[in-house]
């Protein structure tokens, strides 16, 4: 049973799920075992309503203003932003590579779509990540069942609609099993859509 650390206030607008913000930062060049990854990731906080979300988000640095190798993760409460978590282990993620300058807007649109239940895939969404890197930024959305093609197609189509991406944007789907095998989150065969 889940420990309810937060609840929506009486006049606040409740969300379908409770969510937790996480932040991670890595020194480039260091190896990342799943253990050191877990040590590098910090919880920012959990919220249960629209208003509580804004209280966190309004005080957070925009992804576009982060430097180095940093990630914000927003996952349903109880799901760790790790491939190995029970909710993620059979899942995968849609990955979108963004040229510098687009991350803040795209991240906001992505998480608003997730919090507002715009994806319409039942319990399938696990969370979303924005990854700030040197040459580009990457956003991704994780779901539970990588083999469920109807779900992954619906997530892709919703992403296209809510992100309003440039027409040449490359999207790729990667299973966490593949990420565990090749020990990298993003490099993979790209499927241009």
């Amino acid at each position: 049973s889940r420990k309810k650390s937060v609840v929506p206030g009486p006049t606040e607008h409740p969300l379908q799920y409770y969510y937790t913000f996480w932040y991670s930062r890595r020194t480039p060049g260091r190896p990342t075992s799943s253990q050191s990854y877990e040590q590098n990731i910090k919880q920012i906080g959990t919220f249960a309503s629209v208003e509580q979300f804004w209280r966190f988000y309004s005080h957070m640095v925009c992804p576009g203003d982060l430097s180095g190798h940093s990630d914000f993760h927003l996952f349903k409460e109880g799901i760790k932003p790790m491939w190995e978590d029970d909710a993620n282990k059979n899942g995968g993620k849609w990955i979108i590579h963004l040229r510098k300058g687009l991350a803040s807007r795209c991240w906001e649109n992505l998480i608003l779509a997730m919090l507002g239940e715009q994806f319409m895939v039942g319990e399938e969404i696990c969370g979303a990540v924005v990854s700030v890197r040197f040459q580009e930024d990457i956003i991704s959305i994780w779901n539970k069942t990588a083999s469920d093609q109807a779900t992954t197609a619906r997530i892709r189509d919703t992403l296209r609609r809510v992100l309003n991406l440039p027409p040449n944007t490359v999207m790729e789907y990667k299973t966490h099993t593949d990420s565990i095998k090749d020990k990298t989150s993003f490099r993979n065969t790209k499927i241009t859509l």
Binding site: G9, T11, E12, H13, P14, L15, Q16, V50, E51, Q52, F53, W54, R55, S58, N109, L112, A113, L115, G116, E117, Q118, V162
Partner: peptide, 21 residues
């Protein structure tokens, strides 16, 4: 059961609510 669905505009309109400060 019923799902709680909010569109982008609804969420953005709550941003400046006193409850969100």
């Amino acid at each position: 059961g019923t799902r709680i669905i909010y569109d982008r505009k609804f969420l953005l309109d709550r941003r400046n609510s006193p409850l969100a400060q």
